[in-house]
Write a protein that binds this DNA or RNA. Sequence first.
DNA 1: TACCTAACGCTATAGACAGCATGTC
DNA 2: CTATAGCGTTAGGTA
Length: 712
Amino acid sequence: MEIADLPLPAQLAASYTDHGIRELYPPQAACVEAGLFSGKNLLIAIPTASGKTLVAEMAMHHQVANGGKCLYIVPLRALASEKFEEFSGKGLRVGIATGDFDRRDEYLGRNDIIVATSEKVDSLLRNQTPWLSEISLLVIDEVHLIDDPSRGATLEMVITKLRHKNEGLQIIALSATIGNPGDLAGWLDAELVESDWRPVELREGAFLLDTIHFTDSIRRIERRSKHEDLDLVLDTVAEGGQCLVFVSSRKNAEAFAKRAASGLKLSNPILAGYADWIRSNATTDMGRTLAACVGMGAAFHHAGLPREERQIVEQGFREGQIKVIASTPTLAAGLNLPARRVIIRDYLRFNAGEGMVPIPVREYRQMAGRAGRPHLDPYGEAILIAKSDDMVDELFDCYIEAPPEDVRSRCADEAILCTHVLSLIATGFARERNEVLGFMDGTFYANQGENPLALKRVVDRVLDFLLEAEMITDVGGWLEATEYGSLVSRLYIDPRSAELIVTAMTGRKEYTEIGLLHLLCSTPDMSTLYVRQKDIYLLDRFLADHQDELWLEIPWDGGEGFDRSLKTALLLADWVNETGEDTICERYNVGPGDIHGMVESVTWLVHAAQRLAGLFAPHLLHPIEEMELRVQHGVRREVLPLIRLRGIGRVRARRLFNNGIDSIEALRAAGPERVGNILGSGIAARIFEQLDGGGGEIGEPAETQSTLSRFG
DNA sequence: TACCTAACGCTATAGACAGCATGTC
DNA sequence: CTATAGCGTTAGGTA
């Protein structure tokens, strides 16, 4: 099927031909035949890299040409940016909406295509965003994530809400290969397009000692090192390919990258350039290790890395300079980063409470699908590593030839349903008990024929909780959200978090920094740090001195959850007391990326706490507002007056403060010249522009003078 | 005595969405 | 309540 024969706007067709795309891949053609351009709903279950995005893009342009508006839902922020870039510059107005990147919020509705994460769409729905009802085409990327235990229900509810709201909505759902695509297609009233066609041949096999066993052939690998897994890498590189190695833990990723680096020992100016950049920005051991590895052509990739380092690694790999990346599952689900050979070294992963658990077939497929770069590699290889003879057969049975798992609804979970039921009531999707159940009839859960009574019981319990918490009221069967409930729904926090926060804030405890942080870290919305044996001593010592500063009771059973939230709170306390990044990383055994993640989460929660304080504990409003600024910037209280200026962050504020400038007044008194000496004249000029310009309300009067003497 | 190595036991374990209002070094 | 690699400790060996 030729591009030229399709009902596409001229500009899009031209953009495709410019990129050498003239003909559709067979599965893409199947989508057109299944009714892509005639408004049919489609469930497209085809392998990674076989052109799903293009199908969606064509449908979106066709839709817009007919006066429609499109919403493209993705599971990750990084994916949102990737798709945003991809869709931009082809004649349509494209917008992006994610938690960290939505400066166009106001104008979002003017776009033809909006790319957003599922949580962001849910949030927009909760805030009654008007343009959502104009959406005529909904694209759901990675729809199989409806099965994700923690986030799947949100996706399911968002889909159900949008279908409920927008009559005649066309849905295009993109999925990995799953066991029961028929179920999902049935729910969505969609035509099913299924195929295992790929643009690059994929060979899957299991490796033992020095031999790759494929389905009907074997391939010997030269022994080049002490480690078999490394031999596989060196072999790929010797043939001019690149390698992606999936391992189960960060430590393994780093260890493998080190081994690969000393096995490869590459050296060229470009790699050296990357290594220098990483080294000069690195503040931690981890960063220096990465720099050393990258200099020799290998890298590791996990969530502890700071964003910039992650991007360098990805870029270096795309350019073909970095030959190997040893990665945790970060790369499995995330960006499009193909390699000739993918090695799945660890297929067991530690799972709290369960021990080592084999990864699902779907995840294996996800990783294996990364093998083979279209137009660049002659073929792709996905290789599992066996430790014994028997393992080879087992790996074939359990992964290579195994059918992928079925997808199941996750929305019957009581804790998760709680937040969604509240939002249904707060936004008027349901006004009575039966309407809640009626709405749930439209979910995948109900469609899969799960026990409706079980769901009813859960819904009843959830409603009882919400009534008890006074987030909703029930007047003669008529359900309505209270001001509290509506706020919780819009803040997008778990109602259980809100209850915990409100209860603690209205208790008779005095405000303390650690009290607030620990409270927020005890919330189900905050992920907490792992507690090691040697941390326990430190935690106990902290408790001995500061027990009475905590807002929450210490559980008598010395629960693990308590230790975890306390450790996390201590990390954040260090952050707002300007402890250096390297010290924090070492003390808590985390990477810069983890700090960033936790700071981001807690900033969101402090904001929520601030709004809740406005409703229930006005006396806490001011200190919590201060904490909001402090976590955002990672600064002590004493530099807050300075931080409010644009162009001043934690470093510059600290530098000014240490030079005796602790307030707006002091800044004025010092004058541009002296400030210029401290920070550089360009920045000084920008600061004084703000001071002289209309910004009369910037900063606060100096109220922190008492602590000044410490630094003078 | 200084130094190295093999053997052993212990320890720790992936990822990342959401508010709000604009700019860090 | 699983698997595995990395690491620290220690015993044993060698120059």
